[in-house]
Simulated assay, not measured.
Amino acid sequence: MTYLRGFIPWIAYGVVAGFADWRWGALSAFVLSVVLILIDRRSGMKVDAQILEISAAVFFAVLTAVAFIAPHSGVEDYDSCLAFGWLALTSWLSLALRMPFTEGIAKREVPQEYWNSPRFKRVNVVITAAWALAFTVTCAVVTVVYLLGLDDSLDIAAQVAGFVVPVMFTNWYRQRAVGAAQDA
């Protein structure tokens, strides 16, 4: 479940923005992402294990600036679309650069002797692709919900599914990969 740590700023944004204000949600998410990066850097964590945190810091730095400079800009109305779109972009870009964001995270739990194996690489490409697809679909669904003015419960359900489905897939696929490695 180490990979969920990278989503802490995103979750914090949703909670703080929901209960307080989007400006404070953006600022708290930015601060949390920077704190996570600093903690990891001090413990010797490499950048490849911080792709989500770095991505969050960039996204929330921009969102915080917009939120405080132009709080009535309308960006708040599309914050979920933008967030899932950004996460999708981060995921797809990490795949295109052959640095699947899950690989660095997996290195926190998997012994180093497996890091260069084709199986380890393939598992992380598949898992990152699943997250990228989930983020892309969630972005599209949330955008349609907003554009059509549909009920907020659909928005919430789509966002929850956008995290729960890839978490379930990741857990299942990792267990499948471990089982296959043990059988080999």
Rank of each mutant, 00 (worst) to 15 (best):
P71R: 07
Y146M: 03
Y3I: 09
G6Q: 06
V34L: 13
R42M: 10
I39P: 03
V75G: 02
H72G: 08
A49H: 03
L38F: 12
S91Y: 04
A158Q: 08
A83H: 02
V160T: 12
V126I: 15
D151P: 01
R122P: 00
H72E: 15
V165D: 06
G179P: 00
R42E: 11
Y173I: 02
A106G: 11
A65I: 13
A158N: 09
A129W: 00
A83T: 15
L32Q: 04
D48R: 11
I127T: 15
A61V: 03
D152A: 08
R119M: 04
R108S: 10
A88G: 07
A184P: 01
W86I: 05
S153D: 04
V141F: 05
V145G: 10
L87M: 15
W24V: 06
L147D: 07
A12H: 00
Q175I: 00
I8M: 09
V15G: 06
V160M: 11
R23I: 09
G18R: 03
D155V: 00
D48V: 02
T136N: 05
A180E: 15
T90M: 13
L154D: 02
G179K: 14
R119T: 11
V167D: 02
W131V: 11
L93D: 02
A157G: 04
Y114E: 14
L52A: 15
L32V: 08
I51C: 05
A129N: 02
L147R: 12
F19R: 07
C139Y: 04
L82G: 05
S43C: 01
V34W: 11
L147F: 10
L95F: 09
G149V: 02
F163D: 02
S153P: 00
Y3S: 13
E76P: 00
E109Y: 01
L63K: 03
I54T: 04
L52Y: 08
S153V: 10
S117P: 03
V75L: 14
Y146D: 14
W115E: 10
D79E: 06
I69T: 13
W10I: 06
Y3D: 11
Q112V: 10
A161D: 06
M168P: 00
R174D: 02
L95H: 10
V34P: 06
N171D: 03
R5D: 04
V66E: 14
S43V: 00
Y173D: 09
R5S: 10
S73H: 11
V15P: 04
T64K: 05
H72D: 15
C139G: 13
V47P: 00
I37N: 04
V125A: 00
P166G: 10
P111A: 13
P71G: 10
A96I: 10
M45K: 12
D48C: 01
I54H: 11
F19E: 11
G85P: 08
T102I: 03
K107Y: 07
F169V: 04
V167G: 01
N124G: 08
A20W: 15
S153M: 05
A29T: 03
I11Q: 04
F120Q: 06
A29Q: 03
L95T: 08
Q175R: 12
F163M: 12
